[in-house]
Write a protein that binds this DNA or RNA. Sequence first.
DNA 1: CGCATTTGACCGGCGC
DNA 2: GCGCCGGTCAAATGCG
Length: 236
Amino acid sequence: MDVPSSVKDKAEGVEAELEQLQKENAALRLMLQVMRNKYKMLSEAYFRESNSQVPTICRGLTRFDLCEDQHSHKDILIPQLQLAANSSQVFVETDPRDESHIVKDGLQWRKYGQKVTKHNPFPRAYFRCSMASGCPVKKKVQRCMEDKNFLMVTYEGQHNHEVNPSIGQSLSSPSSSAMTSISGFPNSVLDNPLRSAIDLDLNLSSENSSSNGNGNGNDDDYNNKRSMEDYIAVGT
DNA sequence: CGCATTTGACCGGCGC
DNA sequence: GCGCCGGTCAAATGCG
């Protein structure tokens, strides 16, 4: 019983895409989980602080962390978001056995410390930007406790030098197969939480359309991708 | 030999 | 005041 090679190719293509989508789905689930945790912490902190009338400092919380329920807390969250405007967090999928803390984000970093923190058994590595002398940007890299396949990378500060615009693209290079920006990395234009969510969706589609081979897919591939996306869109 | 990394020591902020 | 914890420093070490 012969199966036409074109059908076989299609099936393989769909399988590959399915695998890719499953990876992305895992990344999104993880992100959602982290967001839930942070939102829970934030809301608890807010209700605690609002009782005592003491301003809440929410360093480390980012715009996208808060967008999930922004409509109900819009008024109180905005000042806190501005406090965190200089920091951002991304997730990078890596081999869980890889302990190098290396994230290929297109910048040069110099490691200056490593610590084991209380709530995460995995060591946290501290890096400084070494692309220009005196650049104040730092990043922290730590394996995500919820999913060992991901590194949590926290950037702080703004570069005092030119940053190649293509760096943003390198963030989702094959070496980091699922890199999901949580919020306002200085070189990514994420002006508001909703924009972040929209970008995320667009990335899913655009990554799919370029992830399968040379990026010059033929019409069949295109149709397969469309139907797969349509299928997923209907299913959600 | 120069530069990057490692790692224990140190410091400052915060809560009790 | 004390202890805990996260972040940084700096000497030792490794590597090209």
